[in-house]
Simulated assay, not measured.
Amino acid sequence: MPIDRKSLLTATAVVVALGAGFGLAKLTDRAPPAQVEAEQGEESAESAGDEVKLTPQQASAAGVAVITVSRGGGGDVRLTGRVEASPSARAAVAAPVSGAVVRLLATPGTDVGAGAGLVVIRSADGASVRAESVAAAADAEAAQAALAREERLFKAGVTARQDWEAARAATARASAQAVAARAKVAASGAPSASGETVVRSPIAGVVTTLQAAPGGFVTQGGPIAEVANTSQVEVVITAPAEVAARLRVGAPLMVIGPDGNEANAVIIGIAPLAQGATGAAIVRARPSGGRLMPGAAVSASIATDTQGYPTVPAEAVQTVGGRPMVFIADEDGFKARPVTPGRTGGGYTQIIEGLKGGERIAGRGAFVLKAELSKGEAGDED
């Protein structure tokens, strides 16, 4: 059958059109390069945002400390200090009488209540004081009986008035002596008849030092122990002149404990150093959270410029997938967030992009979260 030239040309045109349409459709379905890069970036960000699920208790046990990113930390000043018990929350306990130490009722680190016994002393002086008190009480009782008898005789007209008045004066003296004897017993630690005295803590707290041992001898007024209430502490910082000049009572600061955890604090006192005229000052601050033990060394972050970049501990920035990351704390754990670090110095790093300040992130121990995230990624590959 002869082929119609016109029909052949028509069929060829249709095939070409269909091929062009298919190619156009393929070109239309393919995203522009910029869009592909953006989508890949989003996928990378989502991958970097993988979460490490840890409860606060698990994080603490793993050595991860959560901190708050300083707002405008570019001008923060970081100083070192120490933790002390508040003046009203510590007590130096002395021996009320001289004597030998019989036994210990507490050891350093023991939690004690107000009035709890610390050591027991056996004292001859204590026994003498107790005997004097008993004798004074007996004299007062006898004088009272004598007064009652003289009063009956005086009313009956048997004795003279001056005899009754003399008995009344003797009763007053005996009562005063009995009161003084009881006060002496109390000041001596309330010794028993055998002279044993229990030395007690005047406040509730923790025994920080104990300077007595069974068999040892202590003198009246000699040191026995020190007790501090660890729930009432202060942070003491020495500030150089240029920093002290910009501080004021009531200003906030952040205290970082030896375990990496932080606590908010407020400056309650600024006193110039007595030595020289350097302008340096002792700064006392009262923390409102955290558990800081007296004697612990801490660092303090004092904001002097609120316009700088946020800063974080250098160890808070970890490299994950070739990118700098910090781990943001949330209800379920920690999520990696990309950041752009700036200058690093003094153990801290400025964050140019990625943080605004005020976020809660992993500080000390952030490398643990990086390791956990890496293990999770390795498991996904398997």
Rank of each mutant, 00 (worst) to 15 (best):
I3M: 13
K6G: 10
L8P: 14
V15Q: 03
G21M: 09
F22D: 05
L24D: 02
K26L: 02
T28S: 11
A34C: 00
Q35M: 07
E42F: 14
A61N: 06
A62T: 07
V64R: 06
G72V: 04
G73E: 01
D76M: 11
R78Q: 04
R82S: 04
S88C: 06
A91H: 12
V93G: 13
R122G: 02
D125N: 13
A138D: 05
D139M: 06
A143N: 09
E151M: 10
L153G: 10
E165D: 14
R173M: 02
A180K: 13
S194V: 14
E196N: 11
E196L: 06
R200T: 15
P202S: 13
A204R: 15
G205T: 15
G215Y: 13
V218A: 04
V218F: 06
G222E: 12
V227F: 11
V233N: 12
V233W: 08
E234I: 15
V235G: 04
T238L: 15
T238P: 13
A245N: 05
A251F: 09
N261D: 03
E262V: 14
A263L: 08
I267D: 01
P272N: 01
G276V: 07
P294L: 08
S301G: 06
T304M: 13
T304L: 15
D305T: 09
A314C: 01
V320C: 09
G322D: 01
G322I: 08
R323K: 10
P324M: 00
M325K: 11
D330C: 02
E331R: 06
G333N: 02
V339M: 08
T340V: 15
Y348V: 10
T349S: 13
G354V: 15
L355G: 03
K356Y: 04
G357Q: 07
G358E: 03
V368P: 00
V368Y: 01
L373M: 14
S374D: 13
A378N: 05
